[in-house]
Nucleic acid binder design. Structure first.
Length: 430
RNA sequence: GCCGCCGUAGCUCAGCUAGGUAGAGCGGCUGGCUGUUAACCAGUCGGUCAUAGGUCCAAGUCCUAUCGGCGGCGCCA
């Protein structure tokens, strides 16, 4: 039996036994009100002086915030109780009496203080709601791909060299040699498509950049599907279906959590295919019209992404960026080789990029040429070039940033709340 | 890395403009209350005012440096 069952009205007038943690306690002298959390929800439990033994009443009186307890009692529907239901306690047992002065108060705290107590902060209703939504999004991603014949092939976290050759990597000692924490699993899923057709990896990635913004973590999770024979257009279709599935699943299964977060559901309810598509060139024109000093050829910055993101009600693809500002492996557009067959998906409401994807170069000669142009060490990519030597096929894929997706769907101001234990340039503890 | 703001009780902050004996709310503790909703009421404990140096009769307050944090930008996803 769980608190969620009680709040759903399934156990009214039934005798229940539950274990949980004391969130707060209020007392009216002869009656004490305990708010108890069990992981599925929070419910009020009352202890009446004339209904329980002296020991139970004094034990209840002793309880400190976050003490763990076991209670037995009768479930009652009662309008005076928050949530409409309460347990009238008959018996109470203290499992662990928490130390007094629980570090987190009921009033506001600063963000640095909260992050320093993340091990306790994760218990708060808002954080529970966010992490429940995160878990639901992860499940939705996997269900969506598994049902469509994808195979999970995890990429290594320890890697020999830069994947894209641009981002700064965390270096770790490796038996007298050097290794690096992965910044993307993409190159490895490009290998497994020749074994499975459609694959994905889903794991943590690492960037050693000193990015100090509300949308960056040094450790974050990325879903990276890769599909043999998928064209650029096939790729976009899959992305809009995936994002729609994620949003609809969260709306259906995590309504209570979105309510806790006071998330306006209307913008999420609008999410369904097809998403708007604008070219990078059109985006530049839009920005210039709005007096942003940006030239064709420059990458889009945070304010530019925000501007575009706010212009559309649904997620919007910005496609065909100049090849020079994008990764070496992206297929040039046959109609205009200056631009790549790539697209970033911008979430609405000002959130900006949550997906980056592209068709990959499948021609050996062209790929070798790009590796050279980007000044990358060809030797490190020999294994990757093999994929173009033995049964190369046109293929596409993308990377979805999990935390950015959580941030958007929960409408958070900062990405650090979207992961149980965030890692940022100034935070490695706890 | 650049720019801006901030460091005062366990927490959130006021006090700084205009230098003159350290404050509030919350939390803790003690007591009260038989329907509380961030419960309430009374009492009580709690401080190297980030650190170092300087100006001054006198510095939490003014000046300099350092450290830490936050916000924005850049890098990046």
């Amino acid at each position: 039996m769980s608190v969620s069952d009680i709040l759903d009205g399934k156990l009214t007038e039934k005798e229940v036994e539950m274990k949980g943690w004391l969130v707060t306690k209020r007392s009216g002298g002869g009656v004490q009100f305990l708010m108890v959390r069990d992981g599925t929800g929070t419910i009020q439990a009352t202890v009446h002086k004339d209904e329980v033994s002296k020991k139970v009443f004094s034990d209840a009186d002793k309880l400190t915030q976050e003490s763990s307890i076991k209670i037995k009692g009768l479930v009652k529907e009662d309008k005076r109780a928050p949530g409409g239901y309460e347990i009238r306690i008959k018996d109470l047992q203290i499992i662990h009496l928490a130390e007094p002065e629980y570090p987190l108060g009921k009033k506001e705290h600063g963000i640095d203080f909260l992050l320093g107590f993340r091990q306790l902060w994760v218990r708060s209703p808002r954080q529970v709601a966010i992490l429940k939504v995160r878990a639901e999004i992860v499940k939705a991603c996997r269900d969506f791909l598994d049902e469509r014949g994808f195979t999970l092939t995890d990429s290594p976290i320890l890697t020999p060299a830069a994947v894209e050759g641009v981002a700064t990597l965390f270096e770790v000692p490796y038996f007298g040699d050097k290794a690096f924490l992965t910044q993307s699993g993409q190159l490895y899923v490009e290998a497994t498509i020749a074994a499975f057709g459609k694959v994905y990896c889903f794991g943590p990635t690492f960037r050693a950049e000193k990015s100090k913004t509300p949308r960056h973590l040094t450790e974050f999770w990325m879903l990276e599907p890769e599909m043999a024979f998928y064209t650029f257009e096939d790729n976009l279709k899959l992305q809009e279906e995936l994002v729609t599935y994620i949003v609809k699943t969260v709306l259906e299964k995590r309504k209570r959590e979105l309510e806790t977060l006071k998330r306006d559901l209307k913008p999420l309810e609008k999410v369904e295919p097809p998403f708007e598509r604008i070219s990078y060139t059109e985006a530049i024109e839009m920005l210039q019209k709005a007096k942003y000093p940006i030239q064709w050829g420059e990458d889009l910055g945070a304010p530019h992404e925000r501007f575009i993101s706010l212009k559309f009600e649904k997620p919007v693809f910005v496609h065909r960026y100049p090849a020079k500002v994008k990764a070496f492996y992206m297929q040039p557009d046959p109609k205009n080789p200056e631009v790549a067959l790539c697209a970033d998906l911008m979430a609405p409401e000002g959130y900006g990029e949550i997906i980056g994807g592209s068709e990959r170069i499948h021609d050996l000669k062209l790929l070798e040429q790009r590796i050279e142009e980007f000044g990358l060490p060809k030797k490190a990519y020999e294994w990757y070039l093999d994929l173009r030597r033995y049964g190369s096929v046109p293929h596409s894929g993308f990377g979805l940033g999990l935390e950015r997706t959580v941030m958007w769907i929960c409408k958070l101001k900062h990405i650090r709340e979207t992961i149980p234990f965030p890692r940022t340039i100034t935070r490695i503890y706890p």
